[in-house]
Design a protein around this nucleic acid. Structure first.
Lengths: 350, 350
DNA sequence: GAAGCTGCTGTAATCGATTACATCGTGATT
DNA sequence: AATCACGATGTAATCGATTACAGCAGCTTC
């Protein structure tokens, strides 16, 4: 058996002041005389006092926490983002609640509960598929001010959004391949209901058209960002009578498994097929051949999203409703793309 | 401007009952007559009422939340675990707070704050390096009952721990290589202060000794689980006058980049060197050659840890102080290991 | 020296739920 | 008919902080 957590009253008693003074020492120390302040600090130290979060939250009507909605927590793409979100929020005194938006538990319900029952002050969603029901919930709870999209977004909902310049990424990819002499370029897409997949595909097609490239319909291969879909795409490409000479993949995972599967099937990358990915996962630089890709600055995306939300939470006057921040992307040229027709000897045959 | 969130009083008024009755309808519906219960439910629906979490938490002295401490959130190994933890906890009405234990913010302080100020009811830590200060904190807060280690653990602290059978994993790896005829086996370790790395290395050495294998000191290569350390290890192996014919890597990330780097250096896997990893990341099955590895059932690990914690939170009488649950591991034989001396033609040269 | 400031601190109301205890009606028991 | 038990419901205390308001001391100002 042991003593109960000391409360503010105990501290006040030890310090010989009122609870109000203790509370002030905690939240607005500059309003106390130095001597009282020190007395209180000393009493806090002596008693081992910690403020009770629930009591504070109840009184201040704040939660000091933010919900982060992740589509598929198991996907490594998101973890770095989550990490940087965590960093910024923690530095600003907020806790981070995570929820996997693909969780079977009736998700709309659960998420709006978080928002409505005061568990969190705001929401960062990495999932662009926000149900309209949830949009309504947010609106009715006057919570729309406290939502930020990160990476993905929804066009139907005008909310602030931090995202990579996906169209630029697709353009950079096509231009890179074009400049290497490729004229027959394929694309493995992400899931058709995903906004990122849509934008990348559209930009891919636009850019190809601008460059006067004609894309055979079967060179556009539907995928879903996953490793499995990349392997499938490789099978399809290998079986084509008229193969593209290069392929732009909507994600690094697609690209990585596509390359591996191609090797299995006797299609050599980059000699027979140049491959470019999207994301720049850490492993992209550690495979053989290393992966040419479009880098998204995931750390920055997370950080910006967290900062945007904090700004909104702290400001009294409403911010610009739907601010869009485009984070730059870069082409990282590595070994999985090469000039068409160029001779090359894989290192292990030299 | 819009109406404030309805409170329990409003619901009570609409339903024509007392607040106590509304509260009971929420938490112990079986104690109400059916007619009253329905009346209350109807009023809740009509008003759009949600319980205020802070008020409930204050009164019940519970938080309905669990903190998950992750060492390096950016590491894909952890995200699947986090996902399954989230699943189980969410299904049991708990929220999940995450914190990256490698965060620069004075971590000990932050974490013990979570525990002491009532923000969370318990802790699942994937980080075995628990500072003794934090141990003290937990003890003094009577929180030791509500902590569960997952994956990693600390020998100095007798707390419940859900972990893979790491020693078995190392043994399976050695036996697999041995049965393929390998007698010169190397090991790339994890960080020396990591308990998993220690156990795997010790079990590796023990098993080698049991089998009568003599391991040259420089075949034990210090690594840190990372991709970068795998590449470095490859350089070292390639430069050895007396190379091992097989190497057991303490993580899949090490193994993957080691294989790729070997290829670069003209060392062919598995022909010149068999490689076996640990973890079975999803990508292990999608690289070329695919990776032989020791599978950890990460979903199960997360689930078990969450269930263990929930049991402890729900039970009044203290549970067995330091229950250790060993989750089984499996050898997944793929292409990165082969019998020594066996002829093989990589598929792309067939 | 009275009035007015200013700076510091205390008193007590308040946030919104839960729950111990009290009350009341009803049917069973003696 | 009196007593008791029991189920359903209401009254009001309580959880532990924050903060509006008030009080008070010391200084300035006229």
């Amino acid at each position: 058996m042991q003593k109960l957590q000391p409360k503010i009253k105990d501290v006040a008693h030890v310090a010989g002041v009122s609870t109000a003074t203790v509370s002030r020492a905690l939240t607005q120390p500059e309003r106390l005389s130095e001597s009282t302040r020190e007395k209180v600090y000393e009493a806090i130290r002596a008693t081992g006092y910690r403020v009770n979060k629930a009591a504070r939250n109840l009184r201040t009507r704040r939660a000091g926490a933010v919900l982060v909605l992740v589509p598929n927590l198991g996907n490594p793409f998101f973890s770095v983002i989550l990490s940087s979100i965590n960093e910024v929020l923690a530095a600003n005194g907020y806790s981070v609640l995570v929820f996997d938006s693909q969780q079977p538990s009736a998700r709309g319900q659960v998420v709006s509960d978080y928002l409505l029952n005061g568990s969190v002050d705001g929401l960062i969603t990495l999932d662009g598929n926000m149900s309209s029901a949830m949009g309504e919930t947010l609106k009715s709870a006057n919570m729309l001010r406290n939502v930020v999209f990160c990476c993905e977004w929804s066009d139907e909902m005008s909310l602030p959004s931090i995202r990579s310049d996906n169209a630029l990424g697709a353009r950079l990819a096509v231009d890179h391949l074009f400049s290497l002499g490729h004229r027959r370029i394929g694309h493995v897409t992400g899931p058709s209901d995903n906004i990122l997949a849509q934008v990348r595909k559209a930009a891919f097609e636009t850019r190809c058209a601008e460059l006067g490239l004609s894309i055979a319909p079967d060179w556009i291969i539907p995928g879903d960002f996953s490793l499995a879909s990349g392997a499938l795409a490789a099978e399809q490409i290998a079986a084509m009578p008229e193969r593209p000479t290069a392929v732009f993949c909507a994600s690094d995972e697609i690209a990585l498994s596509l390359i591996s599967r191609c090797k299995h099937l006797g299609v050599s990358v980059p000699r027979d097929l140049s491959v470019i990915g999207f994301d720049d996962l850490e492993i992209a630089g550690f495979v053989e051949p290393s992966l040419t890709t479009i880098r998204q600055d995931r750390t920055r995306l997370g950080r910006l999203a967290a900062e945007e939300l904090i700004t909104r939470l702290n400001s009294v006057q409403p911010q610009e409703a739907s601010r869009i921040v485009l984070a730059p992307v870069d082409l990282i040229a590595r070994e999985s793309t090469m000039a068409i027709g160029a001779e090359s000897f894989p290192p292990n045959m030299a």
